[in-house]
């Protein structure tokens, strides 16, 4: 199934929760989804017999200036089709529903996005840092991140 067909099916099922479809970019065509509905959309994409997206290839966090974004790359092993979902959340309150219950891949990927980009995944059962030390402050891949001067008494800058 092509991405625009998937978009049409989702549009009839979820209505306004599916915001936009873009296939003009040189990247894979993607579907913008309303942030608080992303779990329901993903649930449908995984368990609907027409879609059967059983594989979350990648979950990525993005810094968009005012907002943070999350990108989901889904793939169906059975139908060999794929789709890209995108959601955005304001940086002041970056809450996104977790899909960790749907795909085990999302467990570590969401922890990484939380660790480096500060996206708060609601419903994740173990949202702790995965790469940085547990007592690290801030989220290093944000554009406005300021490197600390010292960590445990060790100078950070050269």
């Amino acid at each position: 199934m092509l991405a625009n067909e998937i978009f049409d099916r989702l549009k009839t099922e979820f209505g306004d929760a599916i915001l936009a479809f873009d296939d003009t970019q040189p990247t894979d065509p993607f579907i913008m989804v309303q942030t608080d509905k992303v779990f329901d959309v993903c649930y449908s994409l995984r368990d609907n017999d027409e879609f059967q997206f059983d594989y979350l290839m990648c979950l990525t966090g993005m810094d968009l200036g005012e907002n943070v974004g999350v990108v989901y790359h889904l793939y169906s092993m059975k139908f060999k089709h794929k789709v890209v979902l995108k959601v955005v959340a304001p940086k002041a309150d970056p809450k996104v529903p977790s899909v960790e219950m749907l795909w085990k891949t999302a467990d570590w990927h969401e922890r990484e996005a939380y660790d480096l980009m500060g996206v708060q995944f609601e419903g994740h059962r173990n949202l702790i840092r995965i790469l940085c030390p547990y007592d690290w402050e801030g989220h290093p891949l944000r554009k406005d991140y300021e490197t600390p001067e010292f960590y445990h008494g060790m100078k950070v800058s050269y």
Partner: peptide, 20 residues
Amino acid sequence: NCGGPYWEHGYHVLKGVDRI
């Protein structure tokens, strides 16, 4: 020895093990 390629933007790298 000195942080290597991470010397400038490596927020996570100790710039030389001789610091500890």
